[in-house]
Amino acid sequence: MVRRTVDLRSDTVTKPSDVMRAAMAGAEVEDDVLGFDPTARKLEEEMTRMTGKEAALFVPSGTMGNLISVLVHCEVRGSEAILGDNSHIHIYENGGISTIGGVHAKTVKNNHDGTMDLALIRAAIRHPDEELYFPTTRLICLENTHANSGGRCISGEYTDQVGLIAKEHGLKLHIDGARIFNASAALGVPVQRLVQAADSVSICLSKGVGAPVGSVIVGSKSFISKARRLRKTLGGGMRQVGVLCAAALVGLRDHAGRLQDDHRRAKIFTEGLRQIKQLKVDAESVETNMIFFELKESLKSSPEVFCEILQEQGVLALPTSDTCVRVVLHHQISDSDVSYALGSIKRAVAQIAGEVDQ
């Protein structure tokens, strides 16, 4: 019989705390589409303060936040955005920038740490004399932390360099900052410093912050004015949205400052995985709350089967490739949960290894 459930599929799986539910129930609300919801305004003001930008806008999801941001910067159909070939916008957002916005994606190879070589970014920019044949480059996109690189952090110094390239060529810089609070905690650097060079940032509230719904995009006042109109066009204008923003405010207050605990547990988890000889994990790549580990060929199991066996023990994880499994720590995972999950993984490996021996 399963004793407990330890959900490590993502940091999006958290449930609203009792304090969040109380804040949601008691939230002061009005019509946000008309611009009068006081709790939404409070959240947006807090995000402008934390990021050092002029204005902010609550949106239902990070995917919509990224889409709106790209479309604001690339108003002319046939524009081009430079982004990583392993980035969330390129891989996991349904190709929305092209199918909805008519924006062409120019991909640059992501390095192991989530960055892109500066020389390759420069080389990807179209020159004005090429406009007869090619799309017009208008935007560069970064992702921090970089999820498909294991939650690696992008430094402020690197972002500054990309920002300088953008300015030199009259381009805009957008940061998909879904887990920017994790980057801030891991690097010991304020969020404002990490996004200083960006013209816009999308920040998820339902990941490390632990809110049930929503993201916020930040930028200049003119950027947010255009973004508000696009939010309405895309069906993202909601009415008494303060009930959601109230939960996000609690998350910012109670959870964002404790992300180091998630990172500490991730390192403990990683060390435990390193002790299992049939598994392979790159400990150096574990900087925040995400861990990717590989099943060695000798184990003779697919990640799908491995995760099914784990689920029987109440541990939920995600297969991400033919050889790899991902686990993500969050504020509702305790030290005890980490120990239990590691024990379950050891038992799963032993069970599969025993079947192979037979």
Results as ranks from 00 to 15, higher is better:
5 T>Y: 13
8 L>M: 06
9 R>V: 05
9 R>M: 07
11 D>L: 09
14 T>Y: 03
14 T>R: 02
17 S>R: 01
19 V>A: 14
20 M>V: 15
21 R>H: 14
22 A>R: 09
22 A>T: 11
22 A>D: 10
24 M>E: 13
24 M>Y: 12
27 A>R: 11
35 G>Q: 05
38 P>Q: 05
44 E>M: 02
45 E>Q: 11
46 E>D: 08
47 M>E: 03
48 T>H: 05
53 K>S: 12
56 A>P: 15
56 A>R: 02
57 L>F: 01
62 G>P: 03
62 G>M: 10
65 G>E: 06
67 L>Q: 03
74 C>V: 06
74 C>D: 03
75 E>H: 11
75 E>A: 15
77 R>Y: 12
81 A>S: 09
82 I>S: 03
84 G>I: 10
85 D>M: 08
94 N>D: 06
97 I>P: 00
97 I>Q: 01
102 G>W: 00
103 V>Y: 01
104 H>G: 00
105 A>L: 09
110 N>I: 07
110 N>R: 06
116 M>G: 02
117 D>P: 03
118 L>T: 08
118 L>G: 14
118 L>M: 10
121 I>P: 01
127 H>C: 05
128 P>C: 02
129 D>K: 10
133 Y>A: 11
133 Y>M: 12
133 Y>S: 13
134 F>K: 14
135 P>C: 12
135 P>G: 14
136 T>W: 04
142 L>E: 04
143 E>M: 10
151 G>H: 07
154 I>G: 00
161 Q>I: 08
167 K>A: 15
167 K>E: 15
169 H>S: 05
171 L>D: 05
172 K>V: 08
173 L>T: 00
173 L>V: 07
181 F>G: 04
181 F>Q: 04
183 A>K: 01
183 A>G: 10
186 A>M: 04
187 L>V: 11
189 V>G: 08
198 A>S: 07
198 A>Q: 03
199 D>V: 04
203 I>L: 05
205 L>H: 04
206 S>L: 08
209 V>M: 01
211 A>T: 02
211 A>S: 11
213 V>M: 09
214 G>M: 01
215 S>F: 09
215 S>W: 09
216 V>P: 10
216 V>H: 04
217 I>R: 01
221 K>D: 13
225 S>T: 15
225 S>P: 04
228 R>T: 13
228 R>C: 12
233 T>A: 12
235 G>K: 00
238 M>K: 10
246 A>I: 02
258 R>P: 09
261 D>Y: 09
263 H>C: 05
264 R>I: 09
264 R>E: 10
268 I>S: 07
269 F>W: 10
271 E>T: 03
277 K>N: 14
279 L>K: 08
280 K>Y: 05
281 V>G: 03
285 S>H: 13
289 N>M: 07
295 L>C: 12
296 K>G: 15
297 E>L: 14
301 S>K: 00
305 V>Y: 09
307 C>L: 11
307 C>D: 07
309 I>E: 02
312 E>M: 07
315 V>S: 09
323 T>C: 14
324 C>M: 15
326 R>E: 01
327 V>W: 06
329 L>C: 12
332 Q>N: 13
334 S>R: 06
334 S>T: 15
336 S>D: 15
340 Y>L: 15
342 L>Y: 01
344 S>D: 04
347 R>Y: 06
352 I>D: 00
353 A>M: 08
353 A>H: 10
353 A>W: 05
358 Q>F: 11
